[in-house]
Amino acid sequence: MKGMVEIRWHGRGGQGVVTAGEILAEAAMEEGKYFQAFPDYGPERMGAPIKAYTRISDSPIEIHSQITSPDIVVVVDPTLIGLVNVAEGLKDGGTIVLNTSLSPQEAREKLGLEGKNVRVFTVDASQIAMKYFGRNIPNTPMLGALVKATGLVSLESVIRLTEERLGTKVSEDIIQANVKAIKEAYETVKEG
């Protein structure tokens, strides 16, 4: 299990959470790593709280359980903070990256993580998404924030794979808006 990182994503149906996990996995693949990306599906419906998981490792991944003690938690939807125990099981020394307008200190307090050996990062990904897409789909900016916070994969890989992933589905304008959103989140994410 040496060198394996386990990530849990929290979001709502329709926000592209599963897609974000898959893009991260594909970026890991490009960097020659092993990976898993899988959703935790309930009844699939727009707006319902959902979880997704990503594992990244230097060696083949054999475990097929869900992730109960993640190294990293990514919260894509700000309204889940306080509603779902997003920090549940987060490892000592772990990292949580949140989409919120709160400062890292405020978020830490709100999640009851004061004094805990956990790195807290915040970025207003919803605001970034509204600015560039006019819609609250914060999945791609959260990838930018995650990359900055953790250095798991390179920003270039994430941008290229987002372009590839969106390539057949949306216009070039929207692809470029996503790239800008990823970069802005990368630059504006704060630790505290």
């Binding site: 898959e22 996995a25 092993y34 990976f35 990306a37 899988f38 083949p60 097929h64």
Partner: peptide, 12 residues
């Protein structure tokens, strides 16, 4: 193969 666990699980 196992539904969701590998059916919906992206791997290498």
């Amino acid at each position: 193969q196992d539904g969701f666990i590998t059916g919906h699980g992206v791997e290498r």
